[in-house]
Design a protein around this nucleic acid. Structure first.
Lengths: 215, 215
DNA sequence: TTTTTGATACCTATAAGTAGGTAGCTGGTA
DNA sequence: TACCAGCTACCTACTTATAGGTATCAAAAA
């Protein structure tokens, strides 16, 4: 018997799902919440096995944040995102938040039940449609990254940037690159100017964003 | 007519594919290379539309690096990774490098042709099997991230970390948080000690890894 | 009530980073 | 041959960050 909690600010959705699943002998709807805060309040005593939540909700806590909090406080609860959107960024953020499944609101009853059963068993459930959107979005994100600012750097500048991003100090970098610390400082200045960042922090952020280290 | 270049250090693979596609009237094999460097040498004069490459090759340049270089120097060429491995990390790195497709070596002829046609048309092609591995891997990676070092920080420390990662200086942070610069410095020291990083660079790297900014 | 933790604030001292400037040498290109 | 970019190196000057230490107060927990 799977204890299922539904979270969506549209009652018609939670009612619809409840109605859809009412004949299922293995799934028991133990509650319906209209918001993230309400869900967080009720989870400790309702003790669901699986939570299905929408992303967009009217209050401060959206479904992704809810997922993150529930994951942290109740790691045994499996969470499925139920969304209208197959937006790749949202899918990625849901996974990062700890969701075990992501299905769309046009999903049929059979797939819904499959998703619930899968995550209850500790597996993941992402529909083919969601998978395709995710991958297409990742490829597109990468294309939007095509204009790589690090292409503006010379070979030595790029080498030096990698060492900065690996937490070496100027004296350490000087030693590794067989140059003087004066030269390191000059390169740093040129790099920061070329990349139009405020400081080393901005540089490191950009470097990680563009995967200049193979990590 | 799609001009196709094959890159794999196992001749039996490139021969096999060539043989498989020889009856296809829309695809022309214009070359077979046994290594990344060989491919990079030949691409400028062979001018393929599509490159199919393995990942693991004996020399310094693997298929992912090859993809990255080809993408940069010849952005009109579409690249498909052909691999034995459905390893999520490799799939992600392939996408980051610029691959438009990823198929496994157990792929049938029809799917191979579909992949080639798709990427030639500027679309992506990732098999369902690859998609599922990618998503499962991403979820698993996220689970491995569960032990979030930032859980060790207090509320104020976390708030201050976010401001550091947003490139604010100590005086700026002091002003934003209504505290003295001395206190900022003390917090910084405590944070760096708690997280066991070398410096601000390490802190920013960890912060980005754990998505503490909503970017 | 006592202890602990978190937040705040300050001291001294030093290292590291930032920012402006200058200049010479080498190799590649026009 | 002349020019340019990249690399290297140094100067002055200042800001910022790091690192060690100390201490008080308030709130929460034991």
């Amino acid at each position: 018997m799977i204890r299922l909690l539904l979270v969506d600010d549209h009652e018609i959705i939670t009612d619809g799902i409840a109605s859809l699943l009412e004949e299922d002998t293995e799934i028991q709807i133990i509650g319906q919440c209209a918001s993230g805060p309400e869900a967080l309040q009720k989870i400790p005593y309702l003790k669901p096995d699986v939570v299905i939540t929408d992303i967009e909700m009217g209050d401060d806590i959206d479904g992704i944040e809810l997922t993150s909090i529930v994951q942290k406080e109740h790691p045994d609860i499996s969470i499925i995102i139920l969304s209208m959107y197959d937006d790749s960024i949202k899918i990625q953020k849901s996974i990062e938040a700890g969701a075990m499944g992501y299905i769309l609101k046009n999903t049929g009853k059979q797939e819904l039940i499959k998703a619930i059963q899968n995550v209850f068993e500790g597996k993941t459930y992402f529909s083919n449609e969601v998978n395709n959107s995710l991958v297409k979005g990742m490829v597109q994100q990468n294309k939007n990254n095509t204009n790589n600012p690090f292409d503006r750097l010379t070979k030595r500048e790029l080498e030096l940037t990698k060492l900065i991003a690996q937490e070496y100090t100027n004296p350490e970098i000087a030693e590794k690159m067989y140059i003087s610390e004066f030269t390191v400082k000059t390169h740093r200045r040129n790099i920061i100017k070329k990349l139009d960042v405020k400081s080393t922090v901005g540089l490191v952020k950009l470097a990680l964003k563009h995967h200049i280290l193979n990590e």
